[in-house]
Amino acid sequence: MEFLDLVKNRYSCRKFCDKNVEEEKLLQILEAGRLAPTAMNHQPLKIFVVKSAQSLEKLRGITRMAYNAPVVLMVCYDKDLCYRALNYNDEHECGDMDASIVTTTMMMQATELGLNTLWARGFNAVEIARGFELPENLKVSCLLDVGYADPIEGGPSPRHPVRKEMGELVEEL
């Protein structure tokens, strides 16, 4: 599949079927995340694979953003390891951006493998960190729900194909 077709076909799935994600596909998704770029190549990420019934139940008790996906990748960054841009009088910590790049890379790999995903950040990260007893240096950045879409209810939102025109987004200076 051409990359732009992959981007056009990917959508946020909010209803997954019961089919498990094959281990070899999950490993490919995680490898894509491992290879994704990060600021100054610091690689401050930690990805927790949530797929046991007990862990999924715990996560779903904290946030609805896990939906019914058979696998949820909890993407965190280590605030002590992430690159901090301290020059240019514009201090900026790159952990969330690194996590977003890694998550997007994994999301696109999952799509290429015929899986569906939901990239989520509508949750209380502190509650998730507390619920999973994560160390204080790890910050939960986002969740990536992974699985196969329910054939009846798992399709894209009606908002999915709505896009601004290029001229509304891009301007040459």
Rank of each mutant, 00 (worst) to 15 (best):
residue 2 E to K: 13
residue 2 E to Y: 08
residue 5 D to P: 05
residue 7 V to P: 09
residue 9 N to V: 01
residue 11 Y to W: 13
residue 13 C to F: 08
residue 14 R to F: 07
residue 14 R to I: 06
residue 15 K to D: 15
residue 15 K to H: 13
residue 17 C to R: 10
residue 18 D to L: 00
residue 21 V to L: 13
residue 21 V to Y: 02
residue 21 V to G: 13
residue 23 E to F: 02
residue 24 E to A: 12
residue 30 L to Y: 01
residue 31 E to G: 08
residue 33 G to E: 12
residue 34 R to E: 04
residue 35 L to I: 04
residue 36 A to D: 00
residue 38 T to R: 09
residue 42 H to F: 11
residue 42 H to K: 15
residue 44 P to T: 07
residue 45 L to P: 00
residue 47 I to Y: 07
residue 48 F to W: 12
residue 51 K to W: 07
residue 53 A to C: 07
residue 55 S to N: 15
residue 56 L to N: 14
residue 57 E to L: 12
residue 57 E to R: 14
residue 60 R to E: 15
residue 61 G to S: 01
residue 61 G to F: 03
residue 67 Y to K: 12
residue 69 A to D: 03
residue 70 P to E: 00
residue 70 P to D: 04
residue 71 V to F: 14
residue 74 M to Y: 05
residue 79 K to I: 06
residue 79 K to D: 11
residue 79 K to H: 04
residue 83 Y to N: 06
residue 84 R to I: 14
residue 86 L to F: 01
residue 87 N to R: 15
residue 89 N to Y: 11
residue 90 D to G: 09
residue 90 D to H: 14
residue 91 E to R: 10
residue 92 H to D: 03
residue 92 H to G: 01
residue 92 H to F: 15
residue 94 C to W: 14
residue 95 G to V: 02
residue 96 D to E: 15
residue 96 D to H: 12
residue 98 D to I: 11
residue 99 A to L: 06
residue 103 T to G: 06
residue 104 T to Q: 14
residue 110 A to Q: 08
residue 111 T to F: 06
residue 114 G to V: 02
residue 115 L to D: 09
residue 116 N to T: 03
residue 116 N to F: 10
residue 118 L to K: 10
residue 118 L to A: 15
residue 119 W to N: 01
residue 120 A to P: 07
residue 121 R to L: 12
residue 122 G to I: 03
residue 123 F to L: 05
residue 124 N to I: 01
residue 126 V to I: 13
residue 126 V to G: 05
residue 126 V to P: 02
residue 128 I to F: 05
residue 128 I to L: 08
residue 129 A to V: 00
residue 130 R to F: 06
residue 130 R to C: 10
residue 131 G to T: 04
residue 132 F to E: 02
residue 132 F to K: 07
residue 134 L to Y: 00
residue 134 L to R: 07
residue 135 P to C: 09
residue 136 E to L: 08
residue 137 N to H: 11
residue 139 K to Q: 10
residue 139 K to T: 13
residue 141 S to V: 07
residue 144 L to H: 11
residue 144 L to E: 11
residue 144 L to V: 11
residue 145 D to E: 10
residue 145 D to F: 03
residue 148 Y to V: 01
residue 149 A to C: 03
residue 149 A to D: 10
residue 150 D to S: 03
residue 151 P to C: 00
residue 151 P to Q: 03
residue 151 P to E: 00
residue 159 R to I: 07
residue 160 H to C: 00
residue 162 V to D: 04
residue 165 E to W: 04
residue 167 G to I: 02
residue 167 G to A: 14
residue 167 G to P: 05
residue 169 L to T: 01
residue 172 E to Q: 13
residue 173 L to C: 03
